[in-house]
Amino acid sequence: MTTILLTGFEPFAGDATNPSGDAVRLIAERWAGPETLVSEVLPVEFAGASARLGALTREHSPDVVVAVGLAGGRTGLTPERVAINLADARIPDNVGDQPLDRPSVAGAPAAYFATLPVKAMTAAIAAAGVPASLSHSAGTFVCNHVMFTALHETAAAPGIRAGFLHVPYASENAPDGASSLPLGDIVWGLEAALRAAVDSPVDAALPGGTLH
């Protein structure tokens, strides 16, 4: 039985909600398989989020890991292609940690490519009628840190697919003037991405592994 680990994030930076966490909860409520879905909403904390993701990965031995976070200002869902080994925070996390020019994992490679079929996921989201594009930067905040952690945790197990996907604000709670999508569309797009993450071949043009 295939196991999927799906994570979102709690609210941060003064927001009352976080569409990544809200969407993950909704997907978990209506998940009908056939895969086993393990889901959790992570804290927006550099140390706490990476520790919890690592613990979940070791506990459940998932075949697919998809972490989801908010990228305010984006107009659609954006699978991420690369995680870099850098924590450089513009604002503090939810416990006040604000690393500057710090590696996510000391001694690890400079970057990891996602091992998810990110092009197929992007195409599947778009085919579901939800705006989507492939992204080449997950930033340097907790989202990138979690993506790097997921890829580092699974690097020794080449059969595991792992990566990250950003979502925009949900229209129901978006700041005035911010780009957004209805939460239902975000959920629909994420479900399409999960199906592609499980069923699609890894992108032929996308190298897996590390960058040095």
Rank of each mutant, 00 (worst) to 15 (best):
L183V: 14
H152G: 03
S200I: 15
A111K: 01
T3V: 15
E10C: 01
P109E: 02
R52E: 08
T154R: 07
A13L: 09
R90M: 12
N85W: 04
E191P: 05
R195Q: 10
V95D: 15
A128D: 02
R58H: 13
R102F: 02
P175Q: 00
G177T: 11
A204T: 01
F113I: 02
S180A: 10
H212P: 15
N173P: 01
I91W: 15
V198A: 14
V44G: 04
L181A: 04
A16T: 15
A67H: 07
V130L: 03
R90K: 11
L56I: 02
S200W: 07
S179C: 09
S137Q: 14
E153P: 10
G208E: 04
N173G: 01
A71L: 09
G129H: 04
D185V: 07
A47Y: 01
A83K: 02
A156Q: 12
L116I: 07
S20C: 02
A178S: 12
S133D: 15
V44M: 05
N18V: 14
V142E: 11
L100S: 11
V82F: 11
E45W: 02
I186D: 12
S39G: 09
S50P: 03
S39C: 12
S137N: 15
A132M: 00
F9W: 00
R30L: 02
D199N: 09
A192M: 12
D185I: 14
G14I: 07
T3Q: 14
S171M: 03
A150V: 07
T210F: 07
A110C: 04
H60N: 01
T115N: 08
P158C: 09
P158H: 04
L194H: 08
E40G: 09
F148A: 02
